[in-house]
Design a protein around this nucleic acid. Structure first.
Lengths: 165, 165
RNA sequence: GGACACCGCGUGCA
DNA sequence: TGCACGCGGTGTCC
């Protein structure tokens, strides 16, 4: 029996037209639920982070979060958050850590809650179909400035999905 | 008397079937000379640039180069070349500047020579008949893989010229 | 100095 | 519809 037993895999992504500008986020579980949302003016990093936060809030149990953002993944893999807390939320350059209002609830939900959450990085715009799916969802949310919820098709992932006109 | 007195206007264009693939370039002066050439395997950008370089070599005096390539025009209008030289021929992403072997002689012939050369952008596939002419010439060169030289008809610019099958 | 992402633009094609 | 060729910029970290 693999150690991954019971771990939910969730893909996350964010997009932001203009950066800063109108943005969108999305998460999706293969053959499971998905959700997306939008913000009128934000940054790419905030949308990547928001996608993770919304997934943490919506999904119970052990998680594997798959993202193409090293900003998100390396915070945990390289334990950036330890340095941030030790230095009173200053980064290595002595500047205030950006997006602290999002990082704090994320760390609370992962580190402080002692929850089993693993982060995995995948290259963007590559072969991974689930990464392509959340990319399309986040992009659509950013363009339409609305959120969606639903169930990922088990067949062709994005058959009915096309770029927004 | 306009300041443009004595400025030769030259239209340039490049094409490339497949990109990368067999390509062609062309330049033409309204009611003046034209030239075209071909290459067996190249890119669209290299052909656009080559068209400019050949025009600079062939035509004396002050020039107005008209191109539908922002790649070519914005290098001068936005002074990309200054950044490239400052950064040791790295682009803004830190990668080596592409087509440096063509950019260097072009910059030498324009910037370093202190020559009066202006660049103007026109939308491709629009109403401009001279842009259509050099597009047809470059396309024909790419398809036939041969060069041509001649004189632009003063009448209907492209009466005998049609897209190559 | 390094890395990833997010965009914007035009051209060239299939 | 989607790909390749190329550029500039911001968001963020180490």
């Amino acid at each position: 029996m693999p150690a991954d037993q019971g771990v939910t895999i969730v893909y996350t992504d964010g997009s932001c037209h203009g950066n800063p500008g109108p943005g969108g986020w999305a998460w999706a579980v293969p053959n499971g639920p998905y959700a997306s949302g939008a913000e009128a003016r934000t940054t790419n990093q905030r949308m990547e982070l928001t996608a993770v936060l919304r997934a943490l809030e919506a999904l119970p149990g052990a998680l594997e979060v798959v993202s193409d953002s090293t900003y998100v993944v390396r915070c945990f893999q390289d334990r950036w958050w330890e340095g941030w807390r030790r230095r009173g939320w200053r980064n290595a350059s002595g500047q205030p850590v950006a997006n602290r209002d999002l990082w704090e609830p994320v760390l609370a939900a992962v580190i402080d809650a002692g929850r089993a959450v693993r982060f995995r990085w995948v290259k963007g715009h590559a072969e991974d179909p689930m990464n392509a799916l959340v990319d399309a969802l986040a992009n659509r949310a950013a363009s339409r400035q609305v959120g969606e919820r639903g169930q990922v098709d088990r067949g062709a992932l994005l058959a009915a999905d096309r770029p927004v006109p």
